[in-house]
């Protein structure tokens, strides 16, 4: 099991004829993702690496039965691409594009409320269910299947965290990067709720950064609703206030949004906060071992104990 993507994912890539689009579509295909269509207006009828290209998302849905879309189009066209996908009945849209104007995203968010579509991103690495399906730009080989769910606002920082988890024998159920922009389609909270319903996920890693208050809200929800061990990490303890640190969302304004405040809020809600990124994997191994010894495969990932199959545990959401 996993959240949002699985064996039934039929992926469409919007912008597949671009350099980035083609490169990442190919990487996803090699990972095992079923890529059923590409969309580039005006290039319908052609093929990219064996994948049929359509002019519109509606056509790709009708003819190739796409149910998920990954968007890699330039920022001026990205909001339109998201809304086109939602309008055509796509259930999950993953927008990788960075630098979409904020007002475009406000309109997109209002528009999506009228549809049943979930948006992940923009400005995100996408998501991956290790060993099954990759919808994003993350390097596949660092991931291993397992019981830990990962939610993050960053790209490469998530890779670092996942790499350390894998090295300590902690496989992942689904890893999801929600994006570094101030307005994103899917929040920490949405992901937490989905992970809580997933029987495979028995531990969570939450990677946040300065700015906004999403981490604090997530922490409160975890305290009130979630009964599984959670490890948190917050980047930006040394960030100066008022400066935008790369991500449009990462700015400390006034006394809100600081790393110290977020860490405090997380600890108050029972989350195990790791402050040393160099020891993240070891920290997780200790926490997940103490709180749920059955989920840790041990340092040697080649020999997982027999009782770690997903179906021997049920989701542990508080009623």
């Amino acid at each position: 099991m996993s959240i949002f993507i699985d064996r039934d994912t039929r992926l469409l890539v919007q912008g597949i004829t671009g350099r980035e689009g083609r490169f990442h579509a190919d990487r996803c295909r090699r990972y095992g993702t079923r890529i059923v269509a590409g969309v580039t207006p005006g290039k319908g009828g052609s093929e990219v690496d064996g994948t049929p290209v359509f002019n519109t998302v509606a056509e790709a849905v009708r003819k190739a039965r796409a149910n998920t879309s990954m968007i890699l189009v330039p920022p001026p066209f990205a909001a339109d691409a998201i809304m086109e996908a939602a309008d055509a009945g796509i259930g999950l849209v993953v927008c990788i594009t960075e630098g979409i104007p904020l007002f475009d995203m406000l309109r997109v968010r209002s528009f999506l409320r009228l549809t049943g579509c979930r948006l992940i991103g923009p400005n995100c690495p996408g998501l991956i269910t290790p060993g099954v399906c990759k919808v994003g730009i993350m390097p596949g080989p660092i991931h291993t299947p397992g019981p830990v769910g990962v939610i993050s606002r960053s790209g490469t920082l998530t890779y670092e965290v996942v790499h350390q988890l894998s090295r300590h024998g902690l496989g992942q159920s689904t890893c999801i990067g929600i994006g570094g922009d101030p307005v994103v389609g899917t929040s920490f909270l949405d992901c937490l709720q989905a992970f809580a319903e997933d029987p495979q996920t028995r531990g969570l890693v939450l990677v946040g950064e300065i700015g906004g208050s999403a981490e604090e809200e997530a922490a409160r929800w975890i305290r009130d609703h979630l009964d599984m061990p959670v490890v948190g990490f917050i980047a930006g303890l040394t960030a100066p206030p008022g400066r935008r640190m790369g991500h449009a969302g990462a700015i400390v304004s006034g006394s809100g949004g600081t790393a110290a405040a977020k860490i405090r809020a997380m600890r108050d809600c029972g989350i195990h906060v790791c402050e040393d990124l160099g020891d993240f994997g070891g920290f997780c191994a200790r926490v997940f071992h103490d709180l749920a010894p059955e989920i840790v495969f041990g340092q040697d990932k080649a020999s997982p104990p027999d009782n770690t199959t997903a179906d021997s545990f049920s989701a542990r959401k508080k009623s």
Binding site: S154, T238, L277
Partner: peptide, 23 residues
């Protein structure tokens, strides 16, 4: 490479008892 990892790397330098000169 990457804003989140860049911030985390600054934090790591601070933890090591030094101070980052930049992001």
């Amino acid at each position: 490479n990457g804003a989140g990892l860049a911030m985390a790397t600054m934090d790591l330098i601070k933890r090591a008892g030094a101070a980052p000169a930049n992001f």
